[in-house]
């Protein structure tokens, strides 16, 4: 190391020592990660509602109809007070948010769902069947689909991940992950509606059985170039990669050279409902709104009118 390099190393260390180290809470980080993953990007459906006003407070009960014989629950979404938020109330349209949520519920196969969006205090309530509680709570989670080259892991000479690990890690989050057969993982930094021009469910008539539907996605121009570069860089011929959307495997194409048409077809492994729901998730329109304040979610038995 030269003199200047040694000096620089010493100075950098001394400089770093001049700052107190803050305390980072793993619990807090995890909670934020879940919440921000839940509400991430403009595509998150309830972002339009909760991101536009930093309102706090409790309450927000919703009176709902009672379906015949089955218990119902009300899931209430409220914004915590965020003094730094600067909502644009003019772009907040409760009816648009309500329509969007109902569309998602229908695509997910949820029935007897009622939605109320209230401005003051800001609250969104979704009432549905008690048996659908977990799905109602996660109704707003998009299946983000995106990719870009992240870099090869592990480093040369180190043991690569078995390919199965790339697919089986269900808690990888809603990103689109692309893994090659050596387990090297590539992930992206965008959301699905930023990368796709189209997504559609497609029946694949390969034989009898309910799982004969696929999802075909069309990448936009920029993403097509990225995917083309990615596929063109594959070192070995006939290399299989894995494409994931959300926590679900989407496709395992064999790459025999550059793919330039920007079209990825999933495996024919979905039911019609799953395929259509996934297509809707991938192409859900981006609601207006800012990055949200923290959100609270409460679940309570629905009250009858």
């Amino acid at each position: 190391m030269t003199d200047i390099e040694e000096k620089l190393t010493g100075i950098l260390n001394a400089e770093a020592d001049r700052h107190d180290i803050p305390v980072f809470s793993a619990q807090r980080i995890a909670e934020n990660a879940v919440r921000k993953g839940f509400w991430r990007q403009r595509r998150v459906l309830l972002l339009a509602a909760i991101g536009l006003a930093g309102l706090g407070g409790a309450g927000g009960a919703v009176v709902s109809a009672v379906s015949h014989g089955e218990a119902r629950v009300t899931v209430t979404f409220q914004a915590e007070r965020d003094q730094d938020s600067n909502p644009s109330a003019s772009s907040f349209k409760p009816e648009d948010v309500r329509t969007w949520i109902l569309g998602r519920a229908k695509a997910d196969g949820l029935r007897d769902v009622e939605v109320t969006v209230r401005r003051q205090p800001l609250a969104v309530t979704i009432t549905g069947r008690a048996s659908d509680t977990e799905r109602l709570k996660m109704l707003g989670m998009p299946a983000d689909l995106f990719f870009a080259e992240m870099g090869a892991y592990p480093a040369p000479g180190e043991t690569p991940l078995p390919p199965s690990k790339c697919v089986e890690k269900q808690d990888i989050g809603p990103d689109l992950q692309i893994c090659d057969q050596h387990g090297y993982v590539y992930s992206s930094s965008g959301s699905a509606d930023d990368n796709l021009t189209a997504a559609a469910a497609q029946a694949v008539h390969r034989g009898p059985g309910p799982r004969d539907w696929a999802v075909v996605i069309h990448l936009d121009a920029a993403t097509t170039r990225s995917y083309s570069a990615f596929t063109g860089d594959r070192a070995a011929p006939h290399e299989r990669i894995t494409v994931l959307a959300g926590s679900m495997g989407l496709a395992e194409p064999i790459i025999d050279g550059r793919v330039s048409d920007g079209v990825i077809e999933s495996e024919a492994a979905f039911t019609e409902q799953q395929a259509k729901a996934l297509a809707v998730d991938l192409l859900s329109p981006s609601p207006p709104g800012l990055y949200p304040p923290l959100l609270t979610v409460t679940v309570s038995p629905a009250r009858s009118s």
Partner: peptide, 26 residues
């Protein structure tokens, strides 16, 4: 904080890497 949040969303994959810190540093 933001880097650790992003890492946490993919923790199942990150923790299996030989050098998780390298990923977070990136």
């Amino acid at each position: 904080q933001s880097a650790l949040e992003r890492a946490y969303r993919h923790w199942g994959r990150v923790s299996a890497m030989d050098a998780p810190e390298a990923y977070v540093r990136r």
